[in-house]
Design a protein around this nucleic acid. Structure first.
Length: 456
RNA sequence: GCUGGAAUCGUCUAGUGGCAAUGACAAGAGACUGUAAAUCUCUCGGCUUCGGCCUUCGUAGGUUCGAGUCCUACUUCCAGCA
């Protein structure tokens, strides 16, 4: 993998570049679409390319049981993730669903068909999804996460929102005992889908990721939550560094297994503390196994919004300039702007797609809640160049599809809205890139933020 | 015309003597950042100095300390018989 830096901002941190992978180039700064299970929900590979997505991020944890199959297909970029025979939509409630086998890939959904007719019609709806069945392979640059995030989301963060703001008592599911436990070896967890106990450590994560064969892999790490103490963050960070070395060692054994070079990023943790962040950045930067170091770095953690820029500055001042950096899991425009300014090259996040599904639509003048636009004939965003807006879909009609009880219409709404929000964020990164190259980044950011955050 | 049955908060619905009244949908507000998320939380008769107060279960009476619940009449709807 090659990383070419085309330009550096006057602050010495932000930059424009190109990451060259075995499956294509990523012009940075860039936003990667999240396709946890190997596909982006409700968005086809064709749609993804059309809206300018340059790379897809999947998750080794979620794909661990399909890893061998993916390797056989030639790696994530070639894999067709969905097939007609999957048990979806379910005919029984989540609790009574059968154990998922290695052959089965499915989308987490509480959707339950009450009759075989309904199941049939739901199937039909899903077949009509643009990313429908059978899916096309993505065929572009890919990245996989190690499963480190799940250490937190199934462990200490279970049932909580991974919020950058203060903890709000929002839960998605009834709070149960944590499903993941961390030890020096790795993480023991209960698979939330089937209740089966399982284990992933650095070696397992690397073996899985090298079979999945994304262009970029993440070292196995432990993400702490905002509630964790300084002391615990030291412990978790140091463990993450030890895991990073084990990850690197295992990765080197398998990185060419699929016939092309796979790359590994080391992940920086350390919470919101400057000493930890700088220290871990230095440690990971100089880490070597048989003379080989990391190909890039992941910037991880749960952040308070106001701390993000500072934390990234601490990290990136210590990291080698010539290696690419991925800011994990953030995509709100202010986060991307500060991230790019402070030297993050790539980004990923579920928010654009998830929020689209939940009716939050991004516009240049701020986000809108689609619920409030029952009767309007305007498009989602007049200045948007996404296919949804260009096709003339109105807020009113999209709202009607969203609120409709018809699964087919809903699925279509999810597709159209997801494309819109994702395009909005991808376009933001494209514009940041242009602005940096054209020496007007500060002006661009000021104008964008003024419009985006002042109007309702 | 007779005999049964039914009328509840936008809709459907629970409720058989202590009820401002169940659940679902709809509606409204909010959340969501390396996806246990087509999810989750809150509101959903009116007013409130948050302790309550007022008005509500087709209409009008009645029994009762107390009635959505029991009784009588009426109105409307449904079913069966004519």
């Amino acid at each position: 993998m090659e990383f070419v830096i085309e330009k550096v901002l006057p602050n010495g941190l932000g930059r424009v570049g190109v990451i060259k992978t075995a499956h294509g180039e990523i012009k940075t700064p860039a936003f990667m679409a999240v396709g946890t299970r190997g596909y982006v929900r409700f968005i086809s590979a064709d749609d993804l390319h059309e809206l300018g997505a340059q790379a897809m991020l999947s998750n080794g944890y979620h794909l661990r049981r399909q890893a061998a199959k993916i390797a056989k297909a030639g790696g994530l970029a070639e894999w067709k993730p969905l097939s007609f025979d999957q048990p979806f939509p379910f005919t029984e409630p989540a609790a009574s669903r059968p154990v998922v086998t290695g052959e089965t890939c499915f989308d987490r959904s509480p959707l339950v068909a009450k009759s075989s007719e309904e199941r049939e019609s739901l199937f039909k709806a899903y077949e009509l999804r643009p990313d429908g069945l059978p899916a096309k392979s993505w065929q572009g640059p890919t990245l996989t996460d190690s499963g480190g995030f799940q250490v937190m989301s199934l462990g200490s963060g279970l049932g909580k929102v991974v919020s950058m703001e203060k903890e709000r008592h929002v839960t998605n599911t009834a709070h149960k005992e944590r499903l993941a436990h961390v030890s020096e070896d790795g993480v023991s967890f209960i698979d939330p889908f089937d209740g089966e106990p399982d284990f992933i450590g650095p070696e397992e994560s690397m073996q899985i990721q090298c079979q999945i064969g994304a262009d970029i892999h993440m070292a196995f790490d432990e993400l702490t939550s905002l509630a964790d103490t300084y002391e615990y963050n030291i412990e978790a960070m140091q463990r993450t560094e030890r895991w990073a070395e084990r990850s690197l060692r295992e990765h080197l054994k398998h990185r060419d297994d699929l016939g092309y070079r796979q790359n590994l990023y080391g992940i920086l943790q350390g919470g919101r503390w400057e000493d930890l962040r700088r220290q871990t950045a230095q440690n990971l930067a100089k880490m070597r196994v048989d003379g080989a170091g990391f190909d890039g770095f992941g910037l991880g953690g749960a952040f308070l919004k106001e701390d993000l820029g500072e934390i990234l500055r601490w990290c990136n001042e210590e990291l080698p300039i010539e290696k690419p950096r991925h800011l994990l899991g953030l995509s709100h425009p202010d986060d991307i702007l500060i991230g790019a300014e402070m030297g993050a090259d790539t980004f990923d996040c579920v928010a654009p797609m998830r929020e689209a599904r939940h009716g939050k639509i991004y516009t240049r003048n701020g986000n809108i809640n689609l619920r409030k636009f029952a009767d309007t004939g305007e498009t989602l965003d007049q200045s948007c160049d996404c296919t949804t807006c260009k096709a003339g879909w109105t807020r009113g009609s999209l709202r009607a599809m969203w609120r409709s009880g018809d699964a087919e219409k809903k699925a279509k709404y999810y597709n159209l809205a997801s494309i819109h929000n994702l395009r909005f964020i991808v376009r933001l990164t494209e514009e940041i890139r242009k602005a940096m190259l054209g020496d007007y980044f500060d002006e661009y950011r000021r104008e964008f933020l003024a419009k985006y955050y002042t109007e309702a």
